[in-house]
Design a protein around this nucleic acid. Sequence first.
DNA 1: GTGGTCTAGACCACG
DNA 2: GTGGTCTAGACCACT
Lengths: 136, 136, 136, 136
Amino acid sequence: MTRRALLMLQIVTGDPRPITRQITDGIKRQIAGGDLLPGDALPSVRGLAQQLSINPNTVAKAYAELTAEGWLLSRTGLGLFVAEQRQRLSDEERERRLAEAVDRFVSDVIGLDYPQQTILDRVAADLSNYETKKTA
Amino acid sequence: MTRRALLMLQIVTGDPRPITRQITDGIKRQIAGGDLLPGDALPSVRGLAQQLSINPNTVAKAYAELTAEGWLLSRTGLGLFVAEQRQRLSDEERERRLAEAVDRFVSDVIGLDYPQQTILDRVAADLSNYETKKTA
Amino acid sequence: MTRRALLMLQIVTGDPRPITRQITDGIKRQIAGGDLLPGDALPSVRGLAQQLSINPNTVAKAYAELTAEGWLLSRTGLGLFVAEQRQRLSDEERERRLAEAVDRFVSDVIGLDYPQQTILDRVAADLSNYETKKTA
Amino acid sequence: MTRRALLMLQIVTGDPRPITRQITDGIKRQIAGGDLLPGDALPSVRGLAQQLSINPNTVAKAYAELTAEGWLLSRTGLGLFVAEQRQRLSDEERERRLAEAVDRFVSDVIGLDYPQQTILDRVAADLSNYETKKTA
DNA sequence: GTGGTCTAGACCACG
DNA sequence: GTGGTCTAGACCACT
């Protein structure tokens, strides 16, 4: 039996991230946080597009990216489902991506004049939403 | 007396960041890290463009952004200098930028499957390069 | 100095593969075969679309897939370039993909009534186009 | 005397192949491997559909494809049976299919960075499951 | 009904 | 000039 996910997503027009990114980020977080479990069915492309009042192609693109990255699994005619999570990337690639993300993040927050600890706390707070739920 | 900065900058072709961003990031980090001091003069647009083998327009754009954000100060006829103290952003703007950066960062590293502590350590390590130098 | 690649590609309408796949396959083979070297610039999206008489979006999609898979590197405003090849996938993922490809291939050729050796020779012939050139 | 085949088939949800393809592949392999012999009766459309918990239309479509390709033989009122000998495809068609399969396979495994010999060994191993049984 | 592909054309950021 | 995003609508295969 497959659960049909509700997907609490909302598109924010003022968000600097492109719509596709907002969708992929939202879904990744829900999977990482345990709100979406492997095997769960996602809303249909057309359905989510209507719900968010955006073009179906935009949803399809977001879904395609998540599928390519191994988060989702497409079963033609049936729909899209949350995939079993597995380690797809090599250690070198993971390290490279972490380094890149850290570099970008630090460049972003430099000059905002926040104490280092404040920044770390904020990251930890956001991050811990996922660590804990996944192991629960 | 004004120091004429050397600007140890290099454009990395493999870097996903646009060139403008690479320049602004590099300069911001050098100022935050104390390698560039208030009053130091920056290389001329043409000079830096030649040094980096890129289009002068790109350098000019990077300088313009840094000036707009208060990192640099233009003294007409003399060139650009590191500003005495940066123009403070409003608290709302600072908070907005921090939240956005954290959000993006967490989305980037989710799914890389690193322990939370590892991620925090990496951020702290990069961040502390600047904290310490600034207070020194 | 960057080479601007010629890209001997042609779209075959009778080909069962979608156009996007024909493009990605063709480029992957040229990279794997050493006809395209890291750093080489690819034809522009619009240019290749015109050359192949297809929609620019189709080319863009093919390029985007190759970029996501690490074959190409996008430098906004400059164009797309052949990336340095590195091991992006974990050993488990590589093994999984190989197994899947073998399984599909065998299913495809079963019942064609070719001797096993004939099939292997054909695979070897195609495969060796790339192995040898890469090490050369 | 006709044997009623058991058909050790199972639909794998994680499989990227459409369900119809999973069925046809499975049956073809069992025939090629000698597990299903000419004259053996196949499970009814409804029975197999129920056994696999899938839509009867899907089973019917798979059976229709196999019948069209000469693997199965329909005896009206009695059901479907494994054909005595498959209808031979034209040499041109066989060659076309082999070339297409090889082309696709090589495109799939390029970039996985396996030594050519490893790939060939894997294909040979899978392939020999059928060659040997058929000649035995 | 489902997702996937392709076309067409507009708009934006970067160099 | 470059690629990237989004919209709109047509067509196909699979269930």
